[in-house]
């Protein structure tokens, strides 16, 4: 299962990922991405894998990664 990892030491809440992955991410009170499923490292459903890869490559702070491990 692919998961979306957010490096919070890099994330600046620019808001590109919340547009590109609207199904998975909302904005919190300060514009930082918030997983809609409430998890720290949300699972990426298969239909959203392209959108997730796009969000990773377009993040201006390079704060997103797709990771394979489940922990």
């Amino acid at each position: 299962m692919t998961r979306l990892h957010i490096d919070w030491t890099l994330c600046d809440g620019r808001g590109l990922c919340t547009e590109l992955l609207e199904e998975m991410l909302a904005e919190d009170d300060w514009g930082f991405p918030l997983a809609r499923d409430g998890s720290a490292e949300p699972a990426v459903p298969a239909p959203l894998e392209n959108a997730a890869a796009h969000a990773v490559s377009r993040c201006p702070m390079l704060a997103l990664r797709l990771v394979g491990r489940t922990s």
């Binding site: 919070w8 030491t9 994330c11 600046d12 809440g13 919190d28 009170d29 300060w30 930082f32």
Partner: peptide, 12 residues
């Protein structure tokens, strides 16, 4: 001071 949700959320 590094992570946005903590820097903003803990004071709030």
């Amino acid at each position: 001071g590094q992570c946005g949700p903590c820097v903003n959320g803990l004071p709030r």
